[in-house]
Amino acid sequence: MRVELTVNGEPQVADDVWEGESLLYVLRERLGLPGAKNACEQGECGSCTVYLDGTVVCACLVAAGQAEGAEVVTVEGLADGDALDPVQRAFLDAGAVQCGFCTPGLVVAVHDLLARTPDPAEADVREALAGNLCRCTGYEHILAAVRLAAERGGEGRS
């Protein structure tokens, strides 16, 4: 089947989509946007977190057909040209990145968290990011990145 959607502001068309296919597969294998990662296919790890019509979801659990007509934003769509989003900048500055495989999902999840709660308490951060597994960092530097991005507010785009 054909699926038409908007990804990072660009209209996209995917043809020959299998009906049981996930949005994640469409993004990665059909639209050339491998930023969202595939690591569990069951909504446990959050590596595939993207915005779907303004809310964060696991793209692996969204059927491609459910994204028909939807607005999708992936990690590739957060920076403004060369200017990193403040969350991306904070991840870099705080050393919140190791292997990088969980990073795209975490960056999107933190972006959403701070949009909803600009100054979250630590417990709220840990809860809000509970669906994004990271095997490398032990989360401390990720927490630091969230704090840094929150402190900077909307500034820090670079």
Partner: peptide
């Protein structure tokens, strides 16, 4: 929401003739 059904589809545990979204 797909949080159960899509897991089954992804894992090949469910292969229905149709998905009714």
């Amino acid at each position: 929401g797909g949080t159960d059904v899509m897991v089954d589809v992804n894992f090949g545990r469910a292969r229905p003739n149709a998905l009714l979204d």
